[in-house]
Design a protein around this nucleic acid. Structure first.
Length: 390
RNA sequence: GCACAGGUGGGUGAGUGGUUAAAGCCAACAGACUGUAAAUCUGUCCCUCUCAGGAGGUACGGAGGUUCGAAUCCUCCCCUGUGCA
């Protein structure tokens, strides 16, 4: 069978459990750091393991362009290539439809991209997105969707949603026909790279899972319809996409909360691209099982650190001679060892170590936040307002 | 001592008569960042007022001068670099 969610505790609409994947169990609700290019910028895999990262994101579009799917296949798949034995989820390239708006053209068939690297033309169809993701071999792969821009008028949002639905069906069709082509098994050996699915499913091939994505813009009605029709197509897990695209945060909340009500209660629910520590804590408590966001890693590289006392912009002059730990309440290796003054110095001096340490801290903070939420769900005592911010 | 070349805002460095409070870059200071074209981007960056559109003052080594007008031209002085004695 496929990736599945084993719910072990609930509290209100929140749930805690385990996501079963070919590369181990993932405790949910989970935050998934983003490693677009098969690398979480600034942090090595051994440190990610030490931090307790259970599942990473990587990106279809970026890895397809470089190093290219054939290289990853030859290297035994994404897990072996990047030396990561835990779970991986690949995004389909749908977000690039949104973010590379000047470099792509969307049609019924798919998306024509001009590479942001060298300008070369490429075409990503739902089928191609599946082929590439099957080749990469992530545990969870995503349907190609159109991440609708905001603002957009009602007609546009509906058309975009309908396109995503048609693409979802095509993705599922291709995936079902080709999912046994996963090129390697747990052992890392190449398996069954042929075009037919005649070979017996390996453990890995049997368990790679394709998730569908709900769109519908900022319209709860369209979100509901998108959810229902995506569920009709049928996936082992469902994502809420198309949020955090510039809309006010209250609207994000409204759409997340209303959409969650229309998703199956016994399957993984993945909120894509969200959010701040406060947001991930809130949405996990509202029943989201999986979230990813570039915020902790990007903000870290830009000197913005999340702490139990709120945001700290470590570049500020006020920290120049501050001998305190970045976050006195934090038990990460950065806060255990270095002063704010030193972290500011590293940042101001453009030292690579600044990016590394800042990223380690922010990821730790996000992961710690989710550990607290999981404990809260399981233990059944109320989180204090301050607790949600730890 | 002589001969060249220079001295510009925190640094560097454009500018050689007006549209120059003086480009660009750096530093400094602040802000943004949410399925990563992001070690990125934006703003401020002489002083004082401001009804926020601006107003006034000071400023291109120093002192004079030419001119309606000078960082820009002239004179002298000071200083720096290089070369020759």
């Amino acid at each position: 069978m496929s990736v599945r969610l084993q719910i072990e505790a609930t509290r209100g609409s929140a749930r805690a459990g385990k996501l079963i994947t070919p590369h181990g169990e993932v405790e949910t609700p989970v935050f998934m750091p983003v490693g677009t290019l098969a690398s979480v910028k600034g942090v090595s895999q051994d440190v990610l393991e030490e931090l307790g990262v259970q599942i990473l994101l990587a990106n279809t579009y970026h890895l397809y362009l470089r190093p290219g799917i054939e290289t990853v296949r030859q290297m035994g798949g994404l897990h072996r290539f990047m030396s990561w034995d835990r779970a991986i989820l690949t995004d389909s390239g749908g977000f690039q439809v949104f973010s590379l708006t000047d470099l792509r053209k969307v049609s019924e068939e798919g998306v024509a991209f001009r590479s942001h690297l060298d300008g070369s033309p490429h075409f990503l169809s739902p089928e191609k997105a599946m082929e590439v993701q099957i080749g990469l071999g992530a545990d969870i792969i995503m349907a190609l969707d159109e991440c609708t821009e905001h603002p957009a008028d009602g007609q546009r949002v509906r058309a975009s949603m309908e396109l995503t639905l048609r693409w979802a069906a095509r993705c599922k069709g291709y995936f079902e026909a080709h999912k046994y082509e996963v090129a390697w098994a747990e052992s890392g050996e190449l398996r069954s790279v042929g075009r037919t699915n005649a070979s017996a499913p390996t453990r890995a091939s049997a368990t790679q899972a394709l998730f569908g994505i709900v769109q519908g813009g900022m319209d709860p009605g369209l979100r509901r319809e998108s959810a229902a029709r995506t569920i009709d197509i049928g996936f082992p897990g469902y994502a809420i996409g198309g949020l955090s695209v510039g809309e006010p945060r209250e609207i994000t909340r409204e759409i997340v909360l209303s959409t969650l009500e229309h998703l199956p209660s016994n399957q993984p629910r993945y909120l894509m691209g969200v959010g701040t520590p406060e947001e991930i804590a809130e949405y996990a408590q509202a029943g989201v099982d999986m979230m990813d966001c570039v915020l902790p890693t990007r903000a870290a590289r830009h000197g913005l650190l999340f702490t139990s006392e709120g945001k700290v912009s470590i570049k500020q002059a006020r920290y120049a001679q501050d001998e305190n730990a970045l976050d006195p309440a934090c038990d990460c290796r950065v806060c255990q060892r270095y002063s704010r003054a030193y972290l500011r110095h590293l940042y101001a001096s453009n030292e690579l170590l600044a990016q590394v340490l800042n990223t380690v801290h922010n990821l730790h903070y996000y992961l710690a936040t989710m550990r607290i939420v999981r404990a809260w769900i399981r233990a059944g005592h109320a989180l204090t307002p301050a607790g949600t911010r730890l």
